[in-house]
């Protein structure tokens, strides 16, 4: 960590001093926060020995669904804003079953600076663990710049269900700049490596090769220990009302649905339909 970053991460008390330091100008108002959540199996059921809330992430236990422990991430303050460094570290230990959601959409705002914000989500699932990450959409608003990463580490016997939805701008508003890098590894080998970049100054991001004028885009990813039988790629929707493809990755034990739609509601319909096909194809959800 640089001296400037250390100054800022030390908290509010350091802000007046940081302001006086020339090196602190890079992130004048950045918030640094890392929330952590760990699930373990106690021999009988999944328990949550670590729920560490931090900054905007308030972690709240929900009522389990069957044998699946559930946690909701509540937004305790407006974030990410420009200059913020946010991280969410979620670990589902061996044999656990865990679902993590968010209570509301995550809204990337410009804040007091045009500095980029970062939001790093680390998802780790152990042997025979099942981890579902099903947050509400991320909304990129005018003037914001957000670099988001998903780093997913699985074992050969982990299950993962991941959904991400992105909305580019609120109603009648151009979006900010949103970059998302998603890397998924199983047993140390890459399964999926994907980078999307939307919003100016990304060239032609709303053109006919990328989003085609749609403002909502999302993915649903299933990774299972065994190959998932899908007789043929599933094609849903149409160019006007949004469309979606569900198909296997090169690693046949993973299915990915990719969707674009004019509205978040249409996007959710497409991804929910894809999820129903996933459920038909596998008994492991």
């Amino acid at each position: 960590m640089t001296a400037a970053a250390a100054q800022v991460s030390a908290g509010e008390s350091s802000t007046p001093r940081a302001k006086d330091l020339p090196t602190a100008r890079a992130h004048p108002a950045g918030l640094h926060a890392t929330a952590r959540l760990t699930a373990v199996h106690n021999g009988r059921t999944t328990t949550l020995p670590l729920l560490h809330s931090d900054g905007p992430f308030h972690l709240r236990r929900l009522r389990p669904r069957g044998d699946r422990a559930r946690v909701c991430v509540l937004g305790a303050m407006s974030a990410p804003l420009g200059g913020d460094r946010l991280a969410l570290d979620i670990t589902a230990g061996a044999r656990t079953r865990l679902e993590v959601t968010t209570a509301a959409a995550t809204i990337a705002l410009r804040g007091s600076t045009t500095d980029p914000a970062t939001y790093d989500v680390r998802l780790t699932a152990g042997e025979d663990a099942s981890l579902h990450w099903l947050p509400r959409p991320l909304i990129s608003t005018r003037g914001s710049t957000l670099h988001q990463t998903y780093r997913v580490e699985l074992t050969a016997t982990s299950h993962l269900l991941l959904r991400e939805e992105q909305l580019l701008g609120r109603t009648a508003e151009p979006p900010g700049h949103l970059s998302t890098r998603l890397t998924v590894r199983r047993d140390g080998r890459p399964v999926l490596d994907q980078h999307t970049v939307y919003g100016a100054p990304a060239p032609a991001w709303d053109g006919p090769a990328v989003l085609g004028g749609h403002r909502a885009t999302g993915q649903l990813l299933l990774v299972a220990p065994e190959p998932v039988p899908l007789p043929a790629p599933v094609l849903l929707g149409d160019p006007e009302r949004g469309h979606c493809v569900l198909a296997p990755l090169a690693d046949g034990a993973a299915l990915l649905a990719t969707a674009v739609a004019p509205t978040p509601a249409r996007l959710r319909v497409l991804l929910d339909t894809a999820l129903a096909h996933v459920r038909d194809a596998t008994s492991s959800l």
Binding site: T196, A232, H243, A247, A259
Partner: peptide, 21 residues
């Protein structure tokens, strides 16, 4: 190899699969 670009375009993936069918 992770330093190599991995930029993707949703519509190229979606319409590529539609076209093959």
């Amino acid at each position: 190899v992770t330093v190599l670009p991995a930029v993707s375009a949703p519509l190229l993936d979606i319409t590529g699969e539609q076209h093959a069918a």
